[in-house]
Computed example of a mutant assay.
Amino acid sequence: MERPRRPTITDVAAEAGVAASTVSRAFTHPGRVNQHTRAHVLEVAARLGYAPNPLAQALESGRTSTVALVVPDIANPFFVGFVKGAERALASSQRTLVLADGRESAVAEEAVVQRLHRSVDGFVLVASRLDDDALRRAAALAPVVLVNRVTTGLPGVVADYVGGAEQIVSHLASLGHRRAVVLGGPTGSWSGARRWTGLQVAAGRHGVEVERLGPFSPTFEAGAAAADAVLGLRSAAGRDARPTAVVAHNDLLAMGVLARLAERGASVPDELSVVGFDDVFGAALCSPPLTTLAERSERAGALAVDALLSGGAPVGPGQPPQVVPTHLVVRRSTGPAPAPA
């Protein structure tokens, strides 16, 4: 069956008795068309079933009504919340989300910006791996809002890593842990560096010794090597100096650690307590269920879009980013520190 022909702008113009350019302005620049003429054009368009071509509108107006959200790894479930929050905020303003993968690479992320900046109205860069100079180059091409990354002069939204680190260390200290290993993430991770700093400060307040191992890839697969490194550290230390807790860069790494510890016969939490970051889907389903610091990622995604739609303008050097609270979700992967043998 032959599909009926879609009405065109020329059909609407002929039916309404106006020029095609008037029809175009009625949709793209309504302030430049007489109010009664515009109402007449819209009525004819609705009766004919005409809808303007968004690509044509973009060419005329210079606006695409699309925003690009760039994440380091689209396979990481942690970023789902940011996508959902951003998409909902954009849908409510009749805009469309474009999702792009930075592939945990500053080079790949900058290439995404270069490829898309003419096709979108702005960027939300989540956990960007770009350095400050590259971020400013991106902002010179299109409005940019950062999430979980801070660069002077650019608007941003960040999780409360200081408060989150305090919650983690306070929880471990309350269980009697006095030595912990922190499994670091990618070297280019701004949030990873802030988590480590926050954990060090909190550990000093609570009398907990922390040692950092890594960097490790923020993936489940990297958990095996990370767990082996922890067990090697424990075997090399005296019984009284062995770490009894592990804080992983993210949940995927933590879940990989749990799996490897089980393979090697190390009991969690009887011998080692394990904590993650992010509270991704699956953190409550692994064995044992993972204690982790949860971020309000949907809220962060929505706030970033709101900032972008309000102009995404550069901010003053002293203006801090918006801070989104975090909260510790306690599950069975943490327990009392084992007594020295």
Rank of each mutant, 00 (worst) to 15 (best):
S191L: 10
V12A: 05
R5T: 15
F216H: 11
E110F: 09
V210R: 01
A229N: 09
A111K: 07
V147P: 02
R332M: 01
V145E: 11
A127P: 06
L328A: 02
V305G: 07
S119D: 15
S61P: 00
R296W: 03
A307T: 10
L285V: 07
G49R: 08
G316D: 14
F82Y: 11
N53G: 02
P4Q: 13
F123D: 12
R212D: 01
N250R: 11
V124Q: 08
P325A: 12
L135W: 06
L309V: 02
T8M: 03
E295L: 14
S21G: 13
N250C: 13
G318I: 00
P4E: 09
G204Y: 06
E209Y: 02
L328S: 05
T66Y: 00
N76S: 09
V41T: 01
V113T: 01
A294F: 01
S93L: 11
N250W: 11
P336Y: 00
E298D: 10
G31A: 07
F220W: 11
A75C: 06
G204N: 10
L97S: 00
V182I: 12
R88E: 11
T22S: 15
R25I: 05
L69S: 10
R5L: 15
S189N: 02
V268I: 07
A254F: 05
P7V: 03
T197I: 03
S267I: 13
A307R: 14
P155M: 09
V324K: 05
G311I: 10
L141M: 13
E87R: 04
G81A: 12
T66G: 09
V70N: 02
D251S: 03
D11G: 04
A45M: 07
P52W: 03
A100K: 00
V124H: 07
P186E: 15
V210C: 00
A20L: 08
D270K: 14
P7I: 04
A140R: 15
L48W: 09
S287K: 08
V157I: 09
A241T: 08
V23H: 00
S333H: 05
G316R: 12
D251T: 04
A248D: 10
A284R: 14
V147I: 14
V18P: 06
T66A: 15
G17T: 02
A302Y: 05
A86S: 14
V157W: 05
D240E: 15
Q322K: 07
R95P: 05
R242T: 06
E295I: 03
G156C: 04
R239E: 15
A313T: 12
Q114P: 00
P243A: 08
G62C: 07
G238Y: 01
D270T: 13
V181L: 11
T96S: 14
G204W: 07
S273N: 09
A248K: 08
P289S: 00
G81N: 10
A302L: 08
P155D: 11
T291Y: 06
L141I: 00
A180R: 08
